[in-house]
Design a protein around this nucleic acid. Structure first.
Lengths: 187, 187
DNA sequence: TTCGGTGATGTCAGCTACTGACATCGTCAG
DNA sequence: CTGACGATGTCAGTAGCTGACATCACCGAA
């Protein structure tokens, strides 16, 4: 423990979320975020690679969880079903955080730069998923395709979960969306 | 025609491609690009929204072509097959440009910011594809999923086309990849 | 107990991406 | 000939981001 107030990173993230929500991403300076958190701009950039990253530092936890689930999925599962299990497990991370997820997504949806960052996070997730599948013995091309399908399912399911008026179980929506994808691919 | 050398935009794009290739994206300033093109930095930003965009101004032509093909696809085709036809048509744009495509892709692959931009271009393509499908009467969820699958196929096929030693027909690789995706989804 | 190392933060100078406002000057329609 | 137009130049300014160095509580070893 240092001589400063604890959880500098958390305070910065909180301040950023508030300010982005109040004024929009582009109309907030990093200096303002730092000020609200009682820190300096330089410290912000020590905790987050850039102004956008502060909204995405939860992505690594999601990736870890999904990869862990993929690693633990029963061996006889096909590539697409193993991915389904993994993504469904990832959805579990959002339990009881729908309000936060909506708020954050509203900010991201309002800004193209943030959408870029979100997309590349999902892309890196797809790459990791594909690697995990190869480790299960899935051939190269099939691994990439199954992984990308998994991310597509995640995206569509997330959007549904966020948009619906009454909250439904995210994992269940993932299952439904995967089945829908299979149906579309079969037709 | 103005009083200046013609095709300022083309000269800027060419200069940027050269410099990014020589030194890497991050080690090139916009001022240097403009200088090599015989223009000023300010003019660069009048032609391209930012330093990255100069590598992606061909994306609109790709999108137009794909959407046109989707619009012209036979009505009885399923969503996924209509997308297949559209993406295949898009692949035709790259005929005789494999050398250029490889060079450009090498630059993009070496830089995370450029990968972000590439991903969002593909994402916007997916959105447009989904809209096109809805116009064909495909329901919301199925449209999004089919579109994302189409983009996944495009990505995988493009990578294969670029990486293989001897050049094969890009459109044919797209067809193969689509079939592989269907097989993966079915398993 | 003291003292030197460590780690998180502060301070400062600087680069460069990007923007707004205004000036310049061939070209072309009338 | 003239005035509007369009592409470019010039200039000043903001803000994201970085490197280098200073500071100072804490902690473990002597």
């Amino acid at each position: 423990m240092g001589r400063w107030s604890p959880d500098a990173r958390g305070r910065l993230a909180q301040a950023a979320l508030e300010l982005y929500g109040e004024r929009g991403f582009a109309r907030v300076t990093v200096s303002e975020i730092a000020q609200r958190a009682g820190l300096t701009e330089r410290t912000f950039f020590r905790h987050f690679a850039d102004k956008r990253e502060v909204l995405f530092f939860g992505a690594s936890a999601l990736e870890e969880r999904i990869l862990a689930a993929l690693g633990g999925a029963p061996a006889p599962l096909s590539a697409i079903d193993a991915v389904g299990v993994a993504v469904e497990a990832g959805a579990g991370l959002f339990q009881d955080r729908r309000r936060f997820a909506r708020q954050r997504q509203a900010i991201i949806s309002a800004n193209a730069e943030l959408q870029e960052r979100e997309r590349i996070k999902l892309a890196s997730l797809a790459t990791a998923l594909a690697d995990g599948l190869r480790r299960r013995g899935v051939p190269d091309g099939a691994a990439s395709l199954a992984a990308e399908m998994g991310i597509a399912v995640f995206r569509v399911a997330f959007e549904r979960w966020i948009e619906e008026d009454e909250e439904r179980d995210f994992s269940q929506i993932v299952r439904e969306s995967l089945n829908e994808l299979k149906a579309v691919a079969r037709s």
